[in-house]
Amino acid sequence: MTTILDKPMPSPAAADKPIKPIDPNRTRATPYVFVAPAMSGIGLFVLLPALLSFIGSFFAIPLAPGANWKWVGFDNYTSVFGDPAAHRAIENTLLYCAMTIIPSLVLGLLLALLAESLRHGRTLVRTALFLPMTANLVAMAVVFKWIFALQGGFANQALAWIGIAPVNWLNDTRYSLISVALVGVWRGVSLTMLLFLAGLTTIPGAIHEAAAAEGIRGWAKLRTLILPMMKPTIVFATVLSILTSIQAFDQINVMTQGGPQESSETVLTYTWKVGFSYFQLGKASALSFVLIAVLIGIGLIRRRAFSAEQR
C-alpha cells in the first residue's frame, strides 16, 4: 500500500483510460430521462383525459369501442343547464364545500396550535387526532351510517337522552347533505391539522425565542408571525381541502347514494350516474366542466372582492 505521503501515483483521471470529452448529448438527456416516466403517467392519465373530456363534452359519445363520436355542439351543455338534477348537484357541491372547507381549515389550524402547545401527552393527542385521516372512508361511512341510523343509531339515542325527537339523518332531504358533510369535516380536520402541524414545525425555534424576548404573545404572535410564516402551508392546505371536497364521493355513495331525492347529490355522484348508469358520457363531461367553470368563477369573484377590500 503506498501511503498518501509518497503520493505521485498516476493521477486518477489520466490513469487508465484516455480522457473522453463530456458527451453533451448524454448529460443533456439525463433530466429528460428522469422526468419522462412520471410525465408520461400524468400526461396519459390526467392531462389527456381532461382534454378529451373537454372535447368530448361537445360530442355524443357511444360507450362501444370503435363507434364514432358525433358532434353535437353545445347540446350537452344545454342539457346540463336544462336539467334540474344537475342544478341541484352543483348547488349541493357548493354547499358541501362551504360546510366542509372552512370548518376543516379553521378547526385544523386551531387543533394544530393546541396540540403544539401541549406539554404533556402531545404525541398521544396527535395520534388520536390523525386517525380519521388514515381511516378507510367506505368503512367509516358504514359505521357512520349505523351511527346516523333512524332506529337505534347512536345519534338519535343521544338526542333521545336529552329529550329531542329523533332525526332522520340520512333519509330526510333537510339533513342528508349535512350528515355526509359532517363525515367530511371529521376527516378533513385531521388532514389539515397534519399539514398545519408540519408547517408549524418548520418555524425555527429562534423565531419563538425572539418573539418571547420581545413579548409578542398569543393572538398578536399568531397574527403577525405564525400565520404569515405559514402562508405556503395555508395555501397548500386550502387547495387540498378544496380538491378533497369537490371530489367527495365515498361516504355519499355509501351513506345516501345521493338521496333522498337528490338532496345529497353532488357533481361527482351525479356525473357518475349520468356517465355510468345512463351512459350519457358527453353530458357527464359537460357537467364536470360546468362545475370547474363555476369554481373558477367563484375564485375570481373572491379574488376581486379580496383585492377591493385591500384597497
Binding site: 410525465m39 400524468i42 400526461g43 392519465f45 390526467v46 392531462l47 389527456l48 383525459p49 381532461a50 378529451l52 373530456s53 373537454f54 368530448g56 359519445i61 360507450l63 369501442p65 387547495v239 380538491l243 369537490i246 371530489q247 364521493f249 357533481v267 361527482l268 356525473t271 356517465g275 355510468f276 358520457l281 357527464a284 363531461s285 357537467l287 364536470s288 366542466f289 362545475l291 370547474i292
Partner: peptide
C-alpha cells in the same frame, strides 16, 4: 403541467380514462 395536473379533479378525467 405537474401543478396543473395536481388541480384537475377526478370527475374531469374519469370518463375518458375509463373508456
Amino acid at each position: 403541467v405537474v401543478l396543473a395536473c395536481l388541480l384537475i379533479p377526478t370527475q374531469a378525467t374519469m370518463v375518458p380514462t375509463f373508456i
